[in-house]
Design a protein around this nucleic acid. Structure first.
Lengths: 196, 196
DNA sequence: CGGTTCCTTGAGGATGATCAACGAGGGTGG
DNA sequence: CCACCCTCGTTGATCATCCTCAAGGAACCG
């Protein structure tokens, strides 16, 4: 695990336990009260909401080394979204009180969390403005840009459904829009795979 | 100023300066790099984005005592949105380096900021899910709920345009939807004023 | 090879956007 | 006090984008 939010060894000294999840399993659900601090050991998770009509909205993905679900823990509120294993994966967790204790006893870690939270807000503000009030192709471009690593054209490892869930669009709209973008040379589709 | 994020006296010992803005004046703009830590002394500000077609999206309002624009400051990034005086108002500000110094020298304040950032994320996650993927009346209800203080029916102090900017809708849509909600007794409109 | 997941296409529909006027109320200066 | 202006609210008509529904097709995996 590279650059874990909190080193595993440290977590272990505070009584951390490890747990495996199969792809699709729920780690916690919207509206529950948090009891643990979580970190991804391997694999990744998806944070998401489901609306009245069953349509899903993806708040974000969390990869190996990243912590997730801390804000509600810090402010004693219910989870605003659910967390699901996006692949077979492993998490490490410590009980709430232990987490607070870690923050107290390790000022540098507390500071790291302040920076992390700031980064998350920045991210969410950017994502919001890129989705709300924007046309389908703009939303998709914003998504692709944010998940792109380098400058070269690269394979986008998300299904059209996943892109739809993240951008607040429907699969069919994503398919048609992407086709259009390909026609305008804004991206490439080879073998149903998207390169951007 | 009640419950200011950082007490004014303390800010002053770190060289804070005060500045007044007229309603509509810009305090900082999207894409600029931050140089100051800001706090509202009186009045309020609006954080917002403008899209290609000039349509505005309101990220949030910040009232007296609240700090704003800290996340980009903490992570050395550009502002993702602009800040404008929503009324005639006053801010207090300290230079970036002084702000970091305050955090270093006052652990309790650093902790307060961690909590504050967590609260903001929680808020943004909630707002996102209430806007993206939702129908007009749901968006408006979510907005009204979030800005409502008590349990009694109360006057909503926002224009329809402001509601539109916050919910990602158009004024006309807000007007028509509110009219409809009034017909369904979900709120009241007397003298053009909204009670909810 | 069969099942599962993902992708695709077309037709039709609905919600919200756009455009163009106009109305209402409040404040200001003559 | 009245006229004017400015901001905000309102309405109707038309339009566009995206959604919905329904039906297959393609790719991949065990």
């Amino acid at each position: 695990m590279k650059n874990p939010q909190i080193p595993l060894e440290l977590l272990i000294t505070y009584g951390a336990t490890f747990k495996e999840y199969q792809k699709g399993e729920i780690i916690f659900s919207e509206n529950e009260y948090p009891n643990y601090y979580f970190q991804v050991v391997s694999g990744s998770i998806k944070m998401f909401n489901t609306n009245d009509e069953g349509k899903e909205f993806t708040q974000g993905y969390f990869l190996r080394g990243q912590s997730f679900g801390e804000p509600p823990l810090l402010i004693n509120e219910r989870y605003p979204a659910s967390a699901m294993a996006f692949q077979n994966m492993e998490v490490v967790r410590v009980p709430k009180q232990k987490f607070f204790q870690i923050l107290e006893e390790h000022p540098q870690i507390q500071k790291d969390f302040l920076i992390l939270m700031a980064r998350r807000i920045h991210n969410k503000a950017t994502t919001s403005k890129d989705i709300i009030n924007q046309k389908a192709d703009f939303r998709i471009k914003a998504f692709l840009n944010s998940y792109k690593k380098g400058d070269e054209k690269e394979l986008i490892p998300f299904t059209r459904q996943e892109i739809a869930n993240f951008t607040g669009l429907r699969v069919e709209t994503v398919i048609r829009t992407i086709k259009n973008m390909a026609k305008k040379k804004q991206l490439e589709v080879r073998d149903h795979k998207i390169y951007y």
